[in-house]
Design a protein around this nucleic acid. Structure first.
Lengths: 155, 155
DNA sequence: TGATTTATTTCGATAGTCAAACTAATTTTT
DNA sequence: AAAAATTAGTTTGACTATCGAAATAAATCA
């Protein structure tokens, strides 16, 4: 375990604690919000699938599987469910008839936008009462995190 | 859907995107890191249970269940597994013999500290190359988020 | 004491996941 | 051009996590 030293700001531990809090809870809160919404028939994981399918590009099933870290077989059943519930459409590509192109239905686009709204609210609240030059610093911090995580991925 | 307006910094969308990235990926990265570690026999959810049991307080099974958002029955089986694997100890309270007090074994404390280390690394990297007065701003932002999420919980 | 509440466990059902085998379409090799 | 290898997706079977309802056990209340 690392010990604190003098160069670390005194409230490192409290920041760390709040960060852990955020990570442990966002997912659950998002899930709970979804259950109380008009789209209670899908889970947060379904939501992420819908998000990966997204609005404007026609991604293949395996591309989406990769994004959400599911195996192709799990993706198949996930899509089955979302097709049944009317959020996603399957179309066999004419170019290469092995591939399945995925797209959102009207209902899918509605829930996609709602989910985007949720995330925008988070971002707005992250920046609450911040001066423009302060928001830049926050942005740098989040960017640090993204870079670090990207590095962890490629060990 | 909220529209952007002039008071919002131009890179709101990019910050929002990176934040979504972080939320969608931390969990998965944490899970993957765990699989490659010496503790590949537990999942991230197990890790969060261990974290909730934590080092120094003797929490009951249902308290831990509440923290990690599991039903008591699911908690029972989750604990069974972690007891078998040697991470957690069950002790019946002498005060009230209905309640099960949970504690970490030596192995449990080791993995708990490793997990704390992971989170501390995240926090360190969030603050990478930041001046002390900048870290305060970042802390304020994260605190905003915690407060917002706490509000969402109690609708 | 008997009834009620509380903490945990057991049981049965359901849903999500993976790996392996399989189908169909495409590309490469010979 | 036929055969072999590759690729995209699906089906199947096994396993795990989770929940809700009922069971158990202990404490508290009337």
């Amino acid at each position: 375990m690392k010990l604190m030293n003098e160069t670390v700001p005194v409230n490192f531990e409290s920041l760390n604690g709040e960060l852990v809090d955020v990570f442990n809870n966002v997912m659950w809160i998002e899930e709970a919000a979804l259950k109380q919404s008009d789209f209670s028939d899908i889970t947060l994981k379904d939501m992420h699938t819908i998000d990966a399918v997204s609005m404007y590009s026609e991604k293949s099933a395996s591309q989406v599987a990769k994004i959400v870290h599911l195996t192709p077989s799990a993706m198949t059943t996930a899509i089955d469910k979302l097709v049944d519930k009317g959020y996603i459409e399957r179309r066999r590509s004419n170019k290469d008839r092995r591939v399945v192109r995925l797209g959102l239905t009207h209902k899918g686009r509605v829930v996609y936008r709602a989910h985007q709204g949720f995330h925008r609210d988070l971002t707005h609240n992250l920046l609450k009462d911040m001066a423009p030059q302060e928001t830049v610093i926050v942005q740098r911090a989040i960017h640090n995190l993204v870079c670090y995580l990207a590095n962890v991925i490629k060990h």
